[in-house]
Deep mutational scan, measured.
Amino acid sequence: PDLGLTQLFADPNLIENLKKNPKTSEMMKDPQLVAKLIGYKQNPQAIGQDLFTDPRLMTIMATLMGVDL
């Protein structure tokens, strides 16, 4: 199971919303991170391994779920 990750990354406004959010806007200036996020739309399971190697993803996930870290 993808634990709902498919829906989190399926939002067509995902990148724009993250660019507008004060907690994630600075991160979204990294083209490699943006490319990763776009890739998760097609393969949400890929985030599982990346969560352990890129701490920014935890902040992004929390933001998408509405959790304040």
Rank of each mutant, 00 (worst) to 15 (best):
P1I: 11
P1K: 03
D2K: 14
D2I: 15
D2P: 13
L3I: 12
L3P: 11
L5P: 07
L5F: 15
T6V: 14
T6Y: 08
Q7R: 08
L8Q: 04
L8I: 14
F9H: 02
F9L: 11
A10Q: 13
A10K: 10
D11E: 08
D11W: 02
P12Q: 07
P12L: 05
N13T: 07
L14N: 03
L14D: 01
L14K: 01
L14F: 09
L14V: 09
E16P: 05
N17Q: 09
L18H: 00
L18V: 02
K19V: 08
K19R: 12
K19I: 13
K20P: 00
K20C: 07
N21G: 03
N21P: 00
K23E: 07
T24G: 01
S25Q: 10
E26S: 08
M27Q: 03
M27A: 05
M28R: 00
K29C: 05
D30W: 01
D30L: 01
P31Q: 11
Q32D: 13
Q32Y: 13
Q32C: 09
L33S: 01
V34I: 14
A35W: 03
A35Q: 12
A35M: 09
K36W: 06
K36T: 07
L37E: 00
L37K: 00
L37V: 06
I38C: 07
I38E: 14
I38Y: 06
I38T: 08
G39Y: 15
G39N: 15
Y40L: 12
Y40W: 08
K41G: 14
Q42P: 03
Q42M: 11
Q42V: 11
Q42N: 15
Q45P: 05
Q45R: 08
Q45S: 15
A46V: 10
A46Q: 13
A46N: 13
I47M: 08
G48C: 11
G48E: 15
G48S: 15
Q49C: 10
Q49T: 13
Q49I: 13
D50R: 03
D50N: 05
D50A: 06
D50M: 03
D50E: 11
L51G: 05
F52N: 09
T53G: 08
T53K: 14
T53R: 11
D54F: 01
D54T: 01
D54S: 02
L57C: 03
M58D: 05
T59Y: 13
T59L: 15
M61Q: 02
M61C: 09
M61R: 03
M61I: 15
A62T: 12
A62D: 09
A62W: 10
A62Q: 13
A62F: 12
A62R: 06
T63M: 13
T63I: 15
L64G: 02
L64T: 02
M65S: 09
M65I: 09
M65R: 08
G66S: 08
G66K: 09
V67C: 08
D68S: 02
D68I: 02
L69T: 13
L69P: 12
L69E: 14
